[in-house]
Nucleic acid binder design. Structure first.
Lengths: 342, 342
DNA sequence: CTGTTAGCGCATTCAG
DNA sequence: CTGAATGCGCTAACAG
């Protein structure tokens, strides 16, 4: 029976030095390629490394260099949430790309419980990584303070509602995006609109609402906005139900995200209204769901991969020692995706 | 202008020792709680820590302890893929839970390029983590060899097609699941079935096909299986097109996953067939999409969170030094979810 | 209970 | 170009 051993004695730099017949300082130089090593030593060291299967120890190197060549991406989600959103997943890929090219390994940590948040906070304060990318999708922004005493650079994925947190951010131009798609509705002659707003704790949510208001200008009426408790499909259904009695007078639902829009869509269909003939519906995010509905969702696309790349680049700038204003915000453009629902 | 500093001089254990008026060995003991420290020293140390904002250095601790209290979950995806699948995301949450409870911090690494694979391979060989969870969804299993020389325990998320890799695995009982849902079809009087098989490089794919064969037994005919190139919706559409000429004689499509099933569903609808009245369709996975189709998809559910938990538990066993057979495989049961499409 | 000391594995001086 | 020595920050073993 083959079994898996859980222990081992790995070779150290001294072992290969001895085997190559040089001092271990020379091996170190060889490994880091900084100084020159004689060709003869080099080949002998290479052979010794090959023979011993030597690989440098990560902790020792980090300790000596006072840096880890590592960046941690931290995702904060609600306690019981299990799914990492697609947008975050795409951003991860984007960030991983640029950070990798710069020689950094990206690690992802998930904070989805009080215990994990505590553990991560502790890690952050232990020079665990050279920099941090913070995605907090959650109402509870308890991780926000975790980085205050780490001397390391931090970049956030969203505009913070807490002005006291000195972390620059990369976000989407949510306000403009929501404004534009609302105008798109107006331009199509839809003027009796309802806005289904996202949860109030989210800055993103409020920004999008502002965009809706921008588009309507004077005509905006507080009664035409429905405030959802979360970003989920069910909330969209609730919204449609809430406005059921005046559905005949409404010709469009502008929704703060796709999931909500799908809820509205489904509920309108159940009520017997045709989308977009009777009532149009728009989403926001261009999630994978947007093309699986019938009719397909007209929505606002955000390039999440670019989001991640941009965050990674900003972090790299900071890692290189560039000075970045603590409240610097970079806004990425969005784009209307015209499909069938509006 | 507030700016972000990228450097700092963090206090060490000696700083707090000096401030507390004790030796730093005592501080170490205090921190690790192993030995007893006098109450007087304890309070003084606590105060000093508070005052200096001290936090132990991770690398130093790892180096001295020869362990990192960290587990790395590695996801291997196709080069250009950006999305971490929902099932993986849920498994991450499950693993994070049990590992966290045991005091381990889970880190996720994504291997989605040759460069990142190389970087990760190197990390793995540097005592970067105490154990590894490996998710490889990719045809290219180049990471498979990366763990051969690390003395650390590894658990895979899938049965490997490479019997030479000495990593135990936790997987779903794909074969039985596919068999059961096929029988479900047969029991409903659907006997003229087509099986849409997943891509050939995937062991999962082949296991599910075996399950279909098991259910049909003698009646199985090779001509009733369509071999898809991947797991995507488009492949499902292709399958329906392929069998278009004999759709009248077919009363059911058993599909190897939900995405494919949705493709079949959509294409059948386009062809004017009613699902499930004319033709039934089943999926596999119970992905989030399964409830967004019309009709909703009857499918096979796998508890991905439990998958992650199970993997985490197995890894913990190994971390505790338990001997696990290198080819041990734990299979998790699946469950039919009856909705509307079959 | 506590101070002292010897590593952990490696990078980086400084001589030579 | 290379060997020897020092230190990174901390744990653990050892006296006391």
């Amino acid at each position: 029976m083959v079994t898996v051993a859980a222990v081992s004695k790995r070779p150290t730099i001294r072992d290969v030095a001895k085997l190559a017949g040089v001092s271990y300082g020379t091996v170190s130089r060889y490994l880091n390629g900084s100084d020159h090593v004689s060709e003869r030593s080099a080949t002998r060291i290479a052979a010794a490394i090959e023979q011993t299967q030597y690989a440098p120890n990560n902790a020792a190197r980090s300790l000596a260099q006072q840096r880890t060549l590592t960046v941690a991406l931290i995702i904060q989600v609600e306690s019981n949430e299990t799914i990492v959103q697609n947008s975050v997943s795409e951003a991860m890929a984007g960030a991983n790309l640029v950070l990798g090219d710069a020689g950094y390994q990206m690690l992802t940590l998930i904070a989805n419980s009080e215990a994990s948040t505590r553990r991560i906070t502790q890690l952050v304060n232990s020079d665990f990584a050279d920099g941090y990318l913070l995605f907090s999708m959650s109402e509870d922004d308890s991780l926000g303070n975790a980085f205050l005493h780490t001397g390391k650079p931090v970049v956030r994925s969203e505009i913070s509602d807490r002005g006291d947190l000195p972390y620059p951010a990369v976000d989407f131009a949510n306000r403009e995006g929501q404004r534009d798609v609302t105008r798109y509705m107006l331009d199509k002659g839809r003027s009796r609109l309802v806005y289904v707003c996202g949860p109030g704790y989210s800055p993103t949510s409020l920004n999008r609402l502002e965009g809706f208001k921008d588009a309507l200008g004077e005509r905006f009426d507080e009664r035409q906005v429905y405030y959802a408790d979360d970003w989920e499909t069910y909330s969209g259904e609730m919204a449609a139900v809430e406005y059921q009695h005046m559905l005949g007078k409404i010709d469009g639902f502008v929704c703060a995200n796709d999931s909500i829009a799908i809820g509205v869509l489904n509920q309108l269909t159940r009520f017997g209204y045709r989308v977009p003939d009777d009532i149009a519906v728009t989403g926001f995010d261009d999630s994978p769901f947007a093309v699986m509905t019938n009719p397909k969702l007209t929505t606002v696309r955000q390039d999440s991969k670019a989001h991640g790349q941009s965050m990674g680049e900003l972090l790299l700038d900071m890692l290189r020692g560039e000075t970045v204003d603590a409240h610097y915000v970079k806004l990425l453009p969005t784009q209307i995706v015209e499909r069938q629902s509006a």
